[in-house]
């Protein structure tokens, strides 16, 4: 028996040793999640506008265009569960917060959650870099080393590799006009297909609504305004969207806005101010589109000042 246990331990030792090194190495690579967590930890107190959401917000909101200190805490594929988590986590420090911008996209209400589907690998980033407790017990959602990655480890250890894809105020920088592919317009149907869920579960919609309602209620108590925003898209995308799904999303947002006086809903899905030079692909804005959108938002905010400001 002793022989068996010793041999198993000896066999496991080199792999365990390597696993620790890999985990350490991969965690040292700078990335958006680590950066945003650090930024919010250090600057949440003076923050006035917090923007959340998935890639539509991450690439579409340019915080530098606001007249007050704003930060984009969106991430690609970020679901409402994690919007709520980030909001809750930094809320105690965000004493000066006046506005929360919550991008709601065509797919948001029927989304099952980040932990399901092709983008679930991103969940670990919240566990590791935001110290999110939701999925801590599941190694695939809690470790960088869920896969054996010797090349990446060596690069992390011996080169200055950097995976940060956002600017100093959190906006994604990878989707630029320059890097746009030639067939960007035709990506609309592909994105539509990916975002459409005809067979959906009502419980998913209810869960998503409860996340929004939670943010809204907390903001109400703190005198913070919530802006629900559907970001602009190109006609090759919005023309072919499933009507039921789109109407469901819009009516959910309108209902929340009508039930809460601290909520405003801007449905700019088909906003006429945006032309083809503002898009990276059919449903994401590029740097020019982001500036345009944020400028519009800033104008709206200045015409509807927050209660806190009025005080």
């Amino acid at each position: 028996m002793k022989r068996f246990i010793i041999k198993i331990l000896l066999l496991a030792l080199p792999i365990s040793f390597y696993a620790v090194i890999q985990e350490y190495a991969l965690r040292t690579i700078p990335n958006d999640y680590a950066y945003k967590n650090q930024w919010l930890t250090e600057n949440a107190q003076s923050l006035k506008i917090l923007s959340l959401g998935s890639s539509h917000g991450f690439f579409g909101i340019q915080p530098t265009e606001f007249s007050q200190l704003a930060f984009n805490a969106g991430h690609v594929s970020q679901s409402l569960l994690f919007d709520e988590f980030i909001f809750d986590k930094f809320l105690p420090q965000m004493e000066s917060l006046e506005y929360v911008i919550l991008p709601i996209s065509y797919f948001t209400m029927r989304g099952k959650g980040l932990q399901y589907g092709a983008e679930k690998w991103r969940v670990k980033n919240y566990t590791i870099y935001y110290n999110c407790p939701y999925f801590r017990c599941q190694p695939q959602f809690a470790l960088e080393s869920y896969h054996f990655a010797p090349k990446k480890t060596l690069k992390a250890l011996f080169t200055k590799v950097n995976h940060r894809g956002c600017d100093s105020l959190g906006r994604g920088i990878d989707y630029s006009l320059e890097s746009r592919s030639d067939d960007w317009q035709t990506a609309g149907p592909v994105a539509m297909k990916r975002h459409t869920k005809v067979n959906y579960s009502q419980s998913d919609v209810d869960k998503n609504l409860s996340h929004i309602n939670h943010i809204v209620e907390v903001c109400k108590n703190r005198g913070i305004k919530v802006i629900l925003l559907t970001t602009p898209t190109y006609h090759t995308y919005y023309d072919i969207l499933d009507k039921d799904q789109l109407e469901q999303m819009i009516s959910c947002c309108e209902l929340i806005a009508s039930n809460h006086e601290n909520v405003i809903y801007f449905n700019w899905l088909k906003h006429s101010s945006f032309d083809e030079n503002d898009f990276f692909d059919a449903d994401h804005l590029n740097e020019f589109g982001a500036i345009k959108l944020t400028t519009l938002l800033n104008q709206e905010i200045s015409t509807q000042p927050c209660e806190k400001m009025r005080k």
């Binding site: 080199p14 792999i15 695939q140 896969h147």
Partner: peptide, 13 residues
């Protein structure tokens, strides 16, 4: 070791 590393590399959740 090869088998363990393959399992580690290609685990799909």
């Amino acid at each position: 070791y090869v088998l363990i590393l393959i399992i580690w590399r290609y685990s799909a959740g």
